[in-house]
Amino acid sequence: MTLVAMLLILAGLFFFAIGVLGILRFPDFYSRLHAAGKSDSLASVLVIVGVALYNLHDFSFANVLVSLKILLIAVFIYVASPTATHALTRTALVLGIEPWEKGKKRR
């Protein structure tokens, strides 16, 4: 069980790194949202599930309750992350941030 938890945390760190790289490398705001919105939610859920599994290695009722709470964070992140992305996109469109198109210089 500890091994599975370690693997999950490692995978989560990998996707976090992808998210940060994407934020730094993509040419414009909207494609940065792609990297941030997708990678971050999956990565944090992977790490959170890993921590919840690791927490169960000495099994007791209190620990099961704590793990349920941790999973609640995961559910919340999955509802909240797309909503935040959506709000950011709309604000950017209203503020008039221009999308990048093929052939333009990166900003």
Binding site: L33, A36, A84, L88, L95, I97
Partner: peptide, 11 residues
């Protein structure tokens, strides 16, 4: 842009 900063804060 402002959006980039808010996005960075969220991340």
């Amino acid at each position: 842009t402002i959006g980039d900063r808010i996005l960075g804060g969220n991340v």
